[in-house]
Design a protein around this nucleic acid. Sequence first.
DNA 1: GAGTGGTCTAGACCACCGA
DNA 2: CGGTGGTCTAGACCACTCT
Lengths: 253, 253
Amino acid sequence: MGTTQLEPVPEPKYWHLKTVIGEALDSDFAVGEILPNERELAARFGVARATLRQALEQLELEGRLQRRRGVGTTVAPPRVGVDVSTSPNDWPGAAGDTWQAVGCSPAVPPAAVARVLDTEGDEPVHIVRRLLVSHGQPVATELVYVPGTSVPDLSGIDAPSGATRARGVLRELQRLPLEGQDRAVELGSARADDARELDRLPGAPVLVVTTRYFSEGRTAIASVATYRADTCRLTFGDSGDLEIRHDGRRRAS
Amino acid sequence: MGTTQLEPVPEPKYWHLKTVIGEALDSDFAVGEILPNERELAARFGVARATLRQALEQLELEGRLQRRRGVGTTVAPPRVGVDVSTSPNDWPGAAGDTWQAVGCSPAVPPAAVARVLDTEGDEPVHIVRRLLVSHGQPVATELVYVPGTSVPDLSGIDAPSGATRARGVLRELQRLPLEGQDRAVELGSARADDARELDRLPGAPVLVVTTRYFSEGRTAIASVATYRADTCRLTFGDSGDLEIRHDGRRRAS
DNA sequence: GAGTGGTCTAGACCACCGA
DNA sequence: CGGTGGTCTAGACCACTCT
């Protein structure tokens, strides 16, 4: 990546920069390699740092770069495919579920959640917090909203909160007949607490997967899962190795 | 939304701004209403315009605002749910498909696509371009990559290119037995051509849905669909009215 | 032409990380 | 501590849309 002068083109500088750097990433850098710092890069391309940052932001959004404050900018590995297929027609916490229960506490759900649960707006539900770790990295957090009516018998569970109780609530859930589910995916930005757990800054782009689980003709539970959009690719169906966007990347030495 | 002074807090100004404006959106504005312009808002909150823009960008990313150059910033309607469920186990272009075929031309697919299609890297395929319109707005573009071997008999199709040929290729596809499909969703940024069709600027955030269709033990076709991330919520399953993220929005008068 | 959002600059300081 | 990316400023000019 030499001292490339950007020829004057009608397209925005940051867009052109993104293309140029993106190509350099494919040809001159290996996964995990550290890029020159932003001030240096900006000087090299003859643009202000803010302009350069706009290009890097886009590349990070596309999962091609990873930036960490105090450390530097590195070439990101390909996105990890996370299976969110509906085929394991199971409740959260079923056998084979790879999420880690983190905690559980009773609370009044947000109004929008209460609405899909068909509960009263001020009726507290069990909120189970879970974390999904893949390749040693946290990739998603989830809040599972469980109305008391869906787990009527919690007598066997001593723990008042925490991971143990979370697992207990999810275990209790397995006794309900699951009749179907309903899912939506949309773009969001990480709330402060999610961001902390996902090792990102607040506002980082995330894929929000909202699921409704039906049992006995009503919505038994609802869950909102938040996936890191920069590092994840959500997969539906049997094969998680579908990769179609980028190529030509070398592996780290 | 008065001349609110931001109290000095440890969190970034733009983050706090986003919260404040977001709340004002819920309580003081109707869908479709125009906000004061950026210079005015920045002055009101006592911040630089760039800082204000950072907040607006986040709100736009979350689908709560819509900004158009030369026009202004308006309050966005709730995201439209787009059904991408796998249940209509059908090829693209099957009966009931609401996409509009735009064109079709032979071309060598990108290397990454050729790989999943199991074709030679330099073998041209039919590339069908389609557009999905919802509520009068274009919400997605799609490229369907069809190897010649999947539509061996195109003799009935006169049109050399264009929408007519696109429909012909898709019609021919229906004769193949569909054995399954495979899907992935990830975040991307709009290429220049997609952006134009979606009425957005290049680099706008999009949800990229990549699908592989299997027939007779191999990948018969592949498709890459690009949805506007700001206005769309992808839904899987029977109910497209699942909305769980925001509430309290009034309707435009 | 007037007014909007989009791009860009050249600085400054802050928060965080690792040696 | 020095170096990194993150935040913020106060300007300027451009591209676009409406009237």
